[in-house]
Design a protein around this nucleic acid. Structure first.
Length: 220
DNA sequence: GAGGAGATCGTCT
DNA sequence: GACGATCTCCTCT
């Protein structure tokens, strides 16, 4: 580990890119293990980097809350494909949400990214979110920059047209991927998922305990 | 700080 | 034609 990138002028440099086998597991395991990993977007020569602090697992045919519950459609096809690909959907007429597919091809499963702690490229993220960032931004402002799936997607300029079906395991060819920089989170708690009306009781939302960047509602 | 309602459109019935 | 894996703004306390 620890091989430094040549262009170290960026505040943070990658780490080890998560490979396909990482995602080829039960979404609950993947959602749990993604906490603390880096989500990285390349925009031109700039890297937008955040540390994942909140995820949700969506299972396949046994999960009434999952988009894949009723079977494969054009919209959710990525969830049924091979692991490690981006499933991006449009919701409430205005927001995009980013997921990564899990489990082998043919078996539906995904993890929704719900919140991250901004690490690098914060100015750019703020612009993409249409947020004015003062010289010394307050924690309260930074906290709302990427807390929530719609906010995260906006801050990383993720759209369905551009990113749905994108391979997240290839940092050389792709402009969106995840990496492990060796950081380990202290404690993880599981809570019910947010915003759903079916299967609400299952604790499939995973958050880094006490982290100020998780989305606010229903902390429990 | 909490709670409610509106915005807005793709997807599925 | 209804609804949704959400966010923001506004009002009330």
């Amino acid at each position: 580990m620890g091989r430094q990138d040549k262009s170290t002028r960026h505040a943070v440099v990658a780490g080890r890119t998560l490979d396909r086998s990482f995602y080829d597991r039960d979404p609950r395991e993947v959602a749990h293990d993604l906490l603390g990993k880096l989500l990285i977007r390349r925009v031109g020569s700039q890297l937008l980097v955040g540390r994942v602090v909140e995820t949700e697992a969506y299972l396949g045919k046994d999960d009434p809350a999952a988009h894949s519950y009723r079977g494969k459609t054009d919209r959710n096809a990525v969830m049924f494909g091979p692991p490690g690909f981006a499933y991006v959907y449009f919701i409430y007429g205005m927001h995009f949400c980013l997921n990564v597919s899990c489990l082998p091809e043919g078996i539906a499963g995904a993890v929704l990214f719900r919140a991250m702690e901004p690490v690098s490229g914060i100015d750019r993220m703020a612009r993409l979110r249409n947020v004015a960032l003062p010289e010394e931004p307050r924690l309260s402002l930074l906290r709302t920059l990427t807390s929530g799936p719609g906010r995260m997607a906006a801050a990383l300029d993720v759209t369905r047209l551009r990113d749905n079906g994108k391979d997240l395991t290839n940092s050389r060819k792709s402009d969106l991927w995840l990496a492990d920089d060796g950081h380990r989170v202290e404690r993880i708690v599981a809570t019910p998922r947010i915003g759903i009306t079916k299967a609400v009781e299952h604790p499939l939302r995973y958050v880094v305990a006490g982290n100020p960047y998780v989305s606010a509602k229903r902390e429990r």
